[in-house]
């Protein structure tokens, strides 16, 4: 068993765009749930809009990639408003069901054959990132994200982060978005605005009785978190194809797991949680099949690769029961209000 190889591949996930996408979406959920107490179970929908908005902006509307990115963001804002105007008056668990259903509607609309010309239906969309296309589907075409890459071609970095200019470009862009978003969220939640949304999380009627427009605050939180989610989706789209099979309910649940790992009511929790989540996923996804191959586990490699998902579920259960504040959260910052 190539243990070093496994460790190295695992470590590469620290800088993977997927990890950053999870961190961004997790940050959005932290605003929603950790700070404002909104039970959003439809984060996958926001991410799908970010990704598809970007891809459709390029392929259908012929926009340059940097403008197309705003199509995704704009779509997520519109989605947040459509969702929020009626639902923010609802009780917490109702909001959860509405958001999960709304995200599912988005996925079904992206999957249906009716809009194949725009969404690519089950095949999803490819070839919107310009020269070199996506990793798995190189399609020629100028003016895309890849053409904006200022890094000369070549291999950079050191193992396990030794990669070509394209990978580095995505990493750097992702990192910039992530750092910017984290800073902004940190500022927000440590301001009087943050105080109000935390108050709303605790008891919205109390905050209302003090003359705050609770609905507007919740809406602002919903939109901000949604935009962060769409940025996560955008990052996924920058690095690979978009396909509706990615934006399923499980994605939302995985992001919840990452968030709760790090601590829901913390700014750095989503970041830390995503790194843990993905390194753990990568590690388990490699180690179990390797063990199975070496005959140390009594099942097939495919089965061995599934175990990690079972473990995710178990971790989520254990976390919520025994460490609801997350691994690094402060015990006093329990987010779950009874």
């Amino acid at each position: 068993m190539d243990f070093l190889g496994i460790l190295s591949s695992t470590a590469s996930f620290i800088l993977d765009p997927t990890t950053m996408a999870y961190a961004l979406a997790g940050l959005g959920l932290a605003i929603h749930f950790g700070f404002a107490g909104l039970l959003n179970m439809g984060m996958a929908g926001f991410m799908a809009l970010g990704a598809y908005g970007y891809a459709i902006g390029i392929l259908t509307f012929g926009l340059p990639w940097y403008l197309a990115a705003f199509v995704g963001i704009g779509a997520s804002i519109v989605f947040a408003l459509i969702l929020g105007i009626p639902t923010l008056r609802l009780r917490g668990d109702y909001l959860a069901i509405v958001t999960i259903a709304a995200a599912e509607i988005i996925r079904l609309l992206l999957l249906t054959a009716v809009f194949t010309d725009v969404t690519g239906s089950a095949d999803g969309l490819t070839g919107f990132n310009g020269t070199g296309g996506t990793v798995t589907n190189p399609t020629p075409g100028a003016g895309g994200f890849n053409d904006a890459n200022p890094i000369p071609s070549g291999e950079y970095g050191f193992e396990p982060f030794l990669d070509n200019e394209r990978t580095w470009f995505i990493r750097i862009v992702g990192m910039l978005i992530l750092v910017g978003a984290t800073f902004a969220v940190w500022r927000l939640v440590n301001s009087p605005w943050g105080r109000v949304i935390k108050g709303i999380r605790e008891d919205e009627d109390a905050v209302r009785s003090l003359g705050k427009n609770v609905f507007a605050y919740k809406m602002q939180a919903l939109v901000i978190g949604g935009v962060l989610g769409s940025l996560g989706g955008l990052l996924l789209a920058l690095s690979t194809n978009v396909n509706s099979s990615v934006y399923v309910t499980s994605l939302t649940f995985f992001i919840w797991t990452a968030l709760l790992l790090g601590g829901a009511a913390t700014v750095f929790g989503p970041l830390v949680g995503s790194v843990i989540f993905w390194t753990l996923q990568a590690f388990l996804g490699l180690v179990f099949p390797a063990l199975a191959k070496a005959g140390l586990l009594p099942f097939s490699g495919i089965q061995a690769a599934q175990i990690r998902f079972i473990i995710v579920g178990v971790i989520l259960v254990l976390l919520v029961i025994f460490r609801p504040q997350g691994i690094f959260g402060n015990k006093k910052e329990l987010t779950f209000v009874k």
Partner: peptide, 23 residues
Amino acid sequence: KALALLTVMDNMKLGSTEQPGEK
């Protein structure tokens, strides 16, 4: 309806109507 996971001081500050930083 005390806001349980806010400090007493934050509870009080929320009462103020004059804080522009709430925008």
